[in-house]
Structures are given as C-alpha cells and as structure tokens.
Design a protein around this nucleic acid. Structure first.
Lengths: 201, 201
DNA sequence: GTCTATAGCATGATAGAC
DNA sequence: GTCTATCATGCTATAGAC
C-alpha cells in the first residue's frame, strides 16, 4: 500500500517526513536533542536530505512552530449551557488541565518549541496564537456571565488575561510536580476566585 | 589590591570563578550557550581548568543550581502591618513581579537552570526550594487573614498553592510579552479574587 | 530536481606534564 | 595539587555527483 519511503521522492514529501520526525524527537529528547542528524535518522532518510529540504535547522524549527501551533484551538468550550459561571469555569479549566495530563510530553515539547521560536525572533506565530486564546476566553467569559445573569466587575479583557495566565501557572506547576491533588484543588479554587469577580447584573 | 587571577590558584577559588562566569554566560546566551569553553573563556582561565575543578559539565550545573536557588527567599513579606488582606496580597504579588521586571535576564536564567536541573534528575534542590516558597506563602496568608479578622474558606495550603501557581503564570506572561499594563491588571485582579476566598471569622 | 560525500568547526573529556 | 596539550565525537552546512 505505502509507497516506499526511500528512493527519490519530491521535496514536499521529504519536508513532511522530517517535520513528523522532528516532533517525535522533540517529544522524546527535548530541544537539546533536536539535531539535524537525530531528525534524519528518525525519519529514515540520509542526513544530507535535511539541508536540501529546509536549508537550515532554524527553518525546520520555524516550520514546526507554524504547523504545530496553528489551529491548536483550545478546549475552552467544555462547559454546557446549564452550568452556572463557577461550574462552567471549573469545567473549562479542568479540560485544559486534562489535555496536558493526557499527554505531558506534548505540552513539554510545545513549551520548548515556543521558547526556541522566541530565541529565533520568530515571535509572530506565537504571539498570534496567544491572541487567539485570549479572544476565545474573552468570548466564553462574556457568554457565561450573560447566561448566568451576572456582570463582570472588571473589564472582561483583564479577567480573560488573568484566567489565561493563572491557568498556565497551574498547568506548569502540575508539569513540574505531577501532583494531581494539588492541581485539582488549584483549579477548583481558581474557578471560585474568578467567579467571585462577577456580580448580579 | 586583587590577587592576580592567573597562575596556580586553589581549586575552591577556581570553582567560584567558574560559577560566577557560568551565571554570566547563562544570563547572556542562555542554556544552549552554556558550554565549558564559554565558561572558561569568560572566567579568563584555561579550558582544562574546567574539568579539573568540576569533573563534568553536569556537576557545574548542579553546583550552580545549589548556589543560586538556595536562600533565594522570596519577597513575600512586602506587605505592612496596617494593610488589609487584599492590599497585602496585591503588594506581595507586585513585589514579586517587580523583582522580575527589574532583572528579566536573571529570571530567564533561573527558569532554564531549573529545567536543566530537572533533566539531570537532580530534582531535590528545586523541589526543596519550591516547598520553602509554599511554606512562606502559607505563613503570610495565615498572618494576613488573622490580622484582618477573616478566615479562609478553603485549606490555607490550597490557597497558597494557587497563589504561587497563579503568580508564576502572571510573571511568565509578562516575561513572554512584556506588557506592563496587562501584568498590573492581572496582579490587581488576582489579589481581589484570592481575597474573596476569605470570610469574616 | 534529488541526493551523497565531505568539509570545517565546536564540543565534552582525558592523559600526563609540571 | 594544578594545569596543558590533545583526543574522539557530533554538529551544521556545502560542493558537487547523479
């Protein structure tokens, strides 16, 4: 069924192979282990292919950032219509945490990718993705408060920024210590604390 | 005044020189730039000194983690006695943020150091330091609530964990985008939200 | 247009000189 | 006990073969 991976293949196919292999290497060995040789070995292609396909290692990293970060729309819509504000928030936060718990290596890889991208001053994609997140959270916060008949006592833009930052912090704490109990407690408390920033309209 | 840095010097002095140089290199060029040669060049000593003094690069990193992280007691006591709970929290959080703002390179260096230490499975010092932070925050939270005549509606241990995680998140968001306004707003809101977790005793 | 062979350099580490 | 000369390896990148 599969066409053989070896032999002369078009460069686009090589690029895809190498991007797949690069993600696998990044997950398993981290950014320090992401060398051109590790990638080509993993992909099962000769080393020279690398620079033919991408020209430089930095270009590979750029392409990987673009492919992995774009369209990674968050699961901030896990809440259901009947939930009150605090419950909706808790469900959304828990959903974010669960995504990371289900595949910690992926999250770690993304953190390192983002860091690498920033060093490469290819900030655009990363910044754009973060704005998407913020806009989505802002949208959800507006919807939940409206449905619950409450109103935010601070600009919803500021609330959204805090939610994103705090959620990131809780998730990173879990990544650091893998303490499920503490992470769950933090999510519950955070939902309560944020919900307290809304008052009856 | 200064004894010359060159010539035969005791190994302890060499170790100190190399640790100083390693921190400088880490701040300026990041973990990827922290090579044995960069360190010895920076310290102005021959390259071979490195392995005589530390035996391996990993040992240098271990020693650096120990030296930099130990005793980095947080400025969680920036609040004054007359403050109410929310004000005390806001002052403490702002103080943390200001420390990072005053020297972002140092914070970035510490993040990378901690990550390197974790990869080296030398988790002990990092975990110990985080426990110190948590204990200190817990102590302060207890003091503030007591002085304000309020009581926490959740285990103070959980509140402390959330405060630490959320503060980390806000600080890292600032490191990522350097948006002062947003960071200030997040700190203010976070203080308000956390303070709402306390009720009159 | 696709790939191979090789260059050129930086790295972490060591054997042994002083 | 302190330091120097050298090693073996792994890295990115390129010139040119097919």
């Amino acid at each position: 069924m599969n066409v053989p991976a070896s032999g002369h293949r078009p460069v686009d196919e090589r690029r895809a192979q190498l991007l797949d292999a690069a993600l696998a290497v990044l997950r398993e060995h981290g950014l320090a282990g992401l060398t051109t040789r590790a990638v080509t070995t993993r992909a099962g292609v000769p080393h020279g292919i690398f620079h033919y396909a991408f020209g430089s290692k930095a270009a590979l990293v750029r392409a990987l950032v673009e492919r992995e970060l774009t369209g990674a729309t968050a699961a901030w819509d896990a809440a259901v219509a009947t939930d009150d504000l605090e419950t909706a928030l808790r469900r959304a936060l828990r959903a974010q945490l669960d995504i990371v718990r289900a595949d910690p290596a992926h999250q770690a890889a993304m953190y390192e990718l983002i860091r690498a991208a920033r060093d490469d001053s290819d900030v655009s994609t990363v910044a754009w993705e973060r704005r998407q997140y913020l806009a989505e959270i802002e949208r959800q916060l507006g919807g939940w408060s409206q449905r619950g008949g409450v109103t935010w006592t601070a600009p919803v833009e500021h609330v959204a920024a805090l939610v994103l930052s705090a959620a990131d912090g809780v998730i990173q704490a879990w990544v650091a210590d893998h303490d499920d109990e503490r992470a769950d407690a933090s999510v519950d408390l955070l939902a309560r604390a944020i919900a307290s920033l809304a008052r009856p309209a």
